[in-house]
């Protein structure tokens, strides 16, 4: 594992889709080795913010720096060695073995003609073992349960050996056990391997429990940034999500 976290800095980042303003004036510093969760209601701009950081949002305003280097100075390939993005729900067009999916994480290191080297294969094996999917290696990824599939794409991102893991709703569609399993894995990757973790979550309880720092996004603006107890106050939850905080179990007590 690379072991060195990657830091991200955003300065005045804004984004519009046509006339619709989805992000506005985002200033944010995520230090190397931090574990940060991005929260906000649907349409708040969470995925757009991730897309700005990973450089796939067209016509972004403002500056994004990866380890103090402007995003624009990276080629897609060099960026992919720094940032590992865990895809949301993956659709595979052809039957694909789990080890083949995980091996895709090595593409940023692969020579176009020579193909994978021994160290790439070792990284794939290590990533599968790290995430706990080694026993699935020969299975068709399309036949796995959603929980298993989420772990497989996570293993792919780990094999990519970027210094930061970026995840958009990694627990979507997962049952409670798999949700906790994925969260614990993220905590472990962060604490033991030193990876920076930035995840979008919808579950406030999971976020508060597993992340020391929360970002709250509302209407394209960053409205809160801090420890769970400071960010998830009853007033904030009422204002941003438009619901009575009594529906948020861990806050009701």
């Amino acid at each position: 594992m690379s072991g060195v976290g990657v830091g991200v800095e955003l300065r005045g980042v804004g984004l519009s889709y046509g006339h619709r303003r989805v992000l506005d004036g985002i200033d944010l510093v995520i230090a190397a080795g931090e574990r940060v969760c991005l929260l906000g209601p649907n349409g708040a701009g969470k995925s757009s913010l991730l897309r700005c950081i990973t450089g796939v949002a067209p016509d972004r305003e403002g500056a994004v720096l990866i380890d103090d280097v402007p995003l624009e100075e990276f080629s897609r390939e060099t960026l992919a060695r720094r940032l590992a993005v865990v895809p949301g729900q993956v659709q595979l067009p052809f039957a694909t073995r789990v080890e083949e999916v995980v091996a895709l994480g090595r593409l940023p290191y692969e020579h176009p003609l020579r193909g994978p080297r021994a160290e790439d294969r070792a990284a794939v094996t290590a990533a599968m073992a790290r995430v706990g999917v080694a026993d699935l290696a020969g299975r068709d990824a399309r036949e796995l349960s959603l929980g298993e599939r989420q772990l497989v794409v996570l293993a792919m991102a780990v094999a990519q050996q970027g210094g930061i893991l970026i995840l958009d709703e990694p627990t979507m569609h997962l049952d409670l056990r798999h949700q906790v399993e994925v969260m614990e894995l993220l905590v472990d990757l962060n604490e033991r391997d030193g990876l920076t973790v930035l995840a979008v979550l919808h579950d406030l309880a999971l976020a508060a429990h597993f992340f020391p720092r929360l970002l709250l996004l509302d209407h394209g603006r960053l409205v809160e940034d801090g420890a769970p107890a400071d960010v998830l106050t009853p007033d904030r939850v009422r204002a941003v999500y438009g619901v009575d905080p009594k529906f948020v179990p861990f806050m009701a007590s």
Binding site: T54, G55, V56, S75, R76, E77, T78, L79, A80, R81, L83, A84, V85, P87, V90, Q91, L92, P93, F94, T96, V101, L104, G105, L107, P108, Q160
Partner: peptide, 12 residues
């Protein structure tokens, strides 16, 4: 294999 956006994230 994993789609356009994932391909970009894999360095393409």
């Amino acid at each position: 294999l994993l789609g356009d956006e994932a391909a970009q994230h894999l360095g393409l």
